[in-house]
Structure formats: structure tokens, C-alpha cells
Amino acid sequence: MDFGPHLLLAVLEGAVGAAVLALTALGLSLVFGVMRVVNVAHGEFFMLGAVVAWFIASPIAAHPAIGFVAALAIAPLVAGGIAVVVDRLVLKRVEYDPEATIVGTIGVLYIIQQSALMIYGPEARPVEPPFNHRIALPWVEWGDSGLSFYYPWGLSTTSYKLFVIVAAVAILVTFWSVMSRTRLGLIMRATQLDRETAVAFGIPVQRVYSIVFGFGAALAALSAVLIVPIQQAHYLMGHDPLLLSFIVVIIGGLGSVRGTVVAALLIGMSDGIISVFLSPTLSKILATLLVALVLVFRPQGLYGKKMA
């Protein structure tokens, strides 16, 4: 395949990764932004979404779309519900102390991971996509008769991958609307900006924290349900999303929604392109190097605010 079509393929793969990464990292960023909690268990809520999706979709013998839609609705609720319980049982009890919550969420990480191993097992299992048509992609060439389209061999994607990109964009827009246009969003932003003043204006910060922690976990689970028909559900699948989410949130600026989306695009796209042309390991090395450079030259990230 020529370089041009090859690049298009890499960009499409990168866009799928970026879309899912943006959703996952947004959950992490939201939790840190509002609660100042570094949720080390965030990747496990991602894994939980994929595993629950398998449990919901696999027994349904009817059309795969029914199982998928059910998983899309239920898995984020399950992950969000468990996150609310974690908030009440762990985070609230350590009074959201930054260091204690890191240790607490490490414990939660192992509890969820090992519970998944015991209940779900060590196998990697697929969830059938609701639809998965191959779509051949055209390319252009300059021939004797001028510019013409042709379909290079191997240049194709699937309808499901395109759906993942569209769905992620729709969820991001919905998230943005909730945060900027609704009363709940206003309350969350006010809590993020000044917890004490928020309390002084009647905002039940404890309840807001529970909602935010649940919401963050649900976003991770939602992105996992979207990706599990492409990857497979496995009890150790939370590691990479956690690492990449941290990279994205640090580069974008802790707590910045805009920064998270921009950094997810940057990291997701470069991951896809470098993985296709060179190697997936090299893409991770470069992303980690980028984090190091950001921490040295712009510690607050692309869109973060300098700490006073």
C-alpha cells in the first residue's frame, strides 16, 4: 500500500483510539478537577465496563445489537454505582485527603481487579459488535485522465469503528452541554473552583463528590463498552487506559475538560499513527517522553492553570 492510503488507515485507527481515550480520560480529569482525588482505580472501572458488557451481552441470543444496547445502558450504571459505594466507604472516610485517597484507590484497584479474576476468570472474551460492515475507502490518484478515485487493496475500515468515533463525539458534546448548560454542571464547576464557598452557598459538596466519582467511573465504563467489540474484555485490560489517561490529563492540564480532549486527540492520533508505521511500544515511549517534557517546561499542562 502507498504511503497516502496507509496514512489514512493509521489516522482512522488513531481516531478510534483518541475517541475512546478522550472519554476515559475525561472521567479521570473530572474526578481530579472537582474532588482533587487522583483515582488510581480509574482503569478498573474501565475494565468493569467491558466485563459487565460481556456478562450482559453474551447470554442474549437475539440480535447482537440488543445485547450491546443493554450493555451500553447498564454497564456504566453498574460501574457508577460501585464508584459511589467506593466514595462513601473509602474516600469520604479519609476526608478526601490527597495522599490517603491515592493509597485508598490503589486498594480499590486490586479489589476490583481480583474480584473480576474470581468472577469472570482470566480469559479474554469478545463482545459481538451490533453491526460490523466492511467499508472500503477510496483514495485519489493523478492519472492520464486527471484526478480519479480508486479503492486500494486493504484500505478499509468497519462501520462499527466509525460508529465508535461518532458515539464518542456525541457523548463529549452531551458532557460539555451538561457541564456548561445545566444546573448540575454549574454546581460541579462551582465546587471545583472553591469547595468552601460552595458549601457556604448551600451546595451539598459531599453529595456532589459522590455524583462526580460515579459519573467519572461511568464515563470510563461507557468508553469500555464502546471499545470491547474491537478489543476483548479481560481482567487486566485497565492498565493501558489508566496510564494513557494519566498522560492525557497531565498534558491537557489537570481538571481542564478542553485540555483533556485536545491531549486525547494528540495522544490517541499519534498512538495510532506511530503504531501503524513503527511500533506500539515506540508510541508509548514517545507519549511518556512528552509527559516528561510537559512536566519540565509547562507543569500546569496545555490548558491547566498555574497553582498559586
Binding site: 454549574l186 464547576r189 464557598t197 460552595a198
Partner: peptide, 14 residues
């Protein structure tokens, strides 16, 4: 102790 990144209208709304 205003909610500095919120608009005037949003601070009033709170």
C-alpha cells in the same frame, strides 16, 4: 471568594 471562572450571571445564579 468568587467563583472566578464562572460568569457574573452564573455567580448570581448560585
Amino acid at each position: 471568594r468568587l467563583f472566578t471562572e464562572l460568569t457574573v450571571a452564573e455567580n448570581i445564579e448560585i
